[in-house]
Design a protein around this nucleic acid. Structure first.
Length: 111
RNA sequence: UAAGUAAAUCAGAUAGUCGCAGGCUUUUUUGGCCUGAGGAAAGUCGGAGCUCCGCAGGGCAGGGUGCUGGAUAACGUCCAGUGGGGGUGACCCUAAGGAAAGUGCCACAGAAACAAACCGCCGCCAACGGAGGUCGGAAAUCAGAAGUCAGAAGUCGGAUCAAUGGUCCCGAGGUGAACACCUGGUAAUAGCAGCCGGAUGACAGCGCUCGUAGCCAUAGUUUCCAACCUCUUGCCUCUGACUUCCGACUUCCAUUCCGGUAAGGGUGGAAAGGUGAGGUAAGAGCUUACCAGCAUUUAGGCGACUAAAUGGCUCGGCAAACCCCACCCGGAGCAAGACCUAAUAGGGGAAUAACGAAGUAGCCCGCUUCUUUCCCGGGUUGGUCGCUAGAGGUGUCAGGCAACUGGCAUCCCAGAUAGAUGACUAUCAGAUACAGAACUCCGCUUACAGAUUUACUUACUUC
């Protein structure tokens, strides 16, 4: 589902979101949310080297992506969302991560 | 069965649901099919392909490699060997050229670190000292032997007495109480010109001097003379012992000086080949046997090297210190680079026609470019290609000990671009190691839960 259309692919767009977006911290992840004028949600997922080696980073990124894919119907459209993985993500399972994601989204008022 | 050694393989499986990337294929809007992380994808250490750099030429500098032969596109990789080291063994480890080209270093300790004497062992000369021995001389003492003189006692003989023994007294004459004096005879001792004998001696004999002391002058126990013997003392000679002193010679010990010695001790990572025997003043390859090392010759091997014989007789270590020798090395890297589209402009300042500037990784030369170069300012990071059919995989045959090479057959096996390979459920199992492609390949190194296989070694047990 996450085709190129639904991705943030430019470093300028990332920087824009960091500067102007709304920062909402969760237990396992942090979200920066900013309104775009496209009428769709675009996601960007970031896992820094703090999280772990390449394998661990890939796994956590894929989990977040899987949640984002499945969340499409539940969220209001029209936002750029950058999700940053925290170090604590390593120890959790999928269900807890999903819960955390939705609490963050609720805080942001997207669902 | 246990403990090992070497090599190889695997790296959860199956099913379902929902998804992602690429390719193919239809169909025209979305279906279908296929494929989709690793042995290390990691570290980015070595090498190569590929690309660009005004095509990389010479010298210097610099860097790398370093037993031999082979393999390879190449390598610091691999294979086969050689030497060295370790293991009972299977097997493992090994930067392993040159120290007789030169320079340098070898801390501390130690006498000495490249040619050495601290202790030790040994020798010589001289001086001094200590202890002893031998010989000679002198003195003193003691002992013995021989001798000699004197004395005493005795025996015997002779003279004397008529004749024995004992005791006392007296004993020539005269005077006298006595001392003393006088007379006659003899004459010892002593002394000494001398002669002679003795052992050159003590001393004896003869002689001489004095005529003294003494003795005698009626008989007598007595007395005298001579000889012998014994004892004692003195003296002398000889011998011996001991002590002291002096001299000469000699032995041992110690110290100093000089020299020999590399066996031994001690220090050190390392001390001048090792061990045994001979040898020596003591020692030493000084000699010899064996071992190690070196050189030469012969034999074997493409070679590293190995074996044997012979020889003289022995050479410290470090080159991962400089260095020498042999071989190799242009640089930057897929953000390389190419193309397409869009945009366009060359704006300001400076330097200027060679003795200049820039490029070619450093320096010198050489080469190339120059109305160009530098600085300031401005613009660009969109897309496509590179990009995965390759020093490719699998099988087989052939060559080779092997690494590897060649032929044939067959297969196509990730290619993203903020970056795919995932999420959930169920079942099974030993309950999940290390870990994620980014141009490619060959290696190396490092990480790793476990599982399996093959070959071999050692030990034990059974048949």
């Amino acid at each position: 589902m996450l085709k190129k259309l639904f991705r943030i692919s430019n470093s300028q767009e990332y920087n824009n979101t960091y500067k102007n977006g709304l920062k909402i911290p969760g237990k396992y992840l942090i979200a920066y949310i900013m309104i775009n004028n496209l009428g769709i949600n675009r996601f960007g997922i970031v896992a820094s080297k703090k999280v772990g080696n390449a394998v661990i980073r890939n796994r956590s990124r894929r989990r977040i992506r899987a949640i984002a894919e499945s969340s499409g119907e539940h969220l209001q459209p029209g936002y750029d969302i950058v999700i940053i993985a925290r170090q604590s993500i390593v120890a959790t399972d999928y269900n807890r991560l999903e819960k955390d994601f939705y609490t963050v989204m609720k805080k942001a008022g997207l669902c």
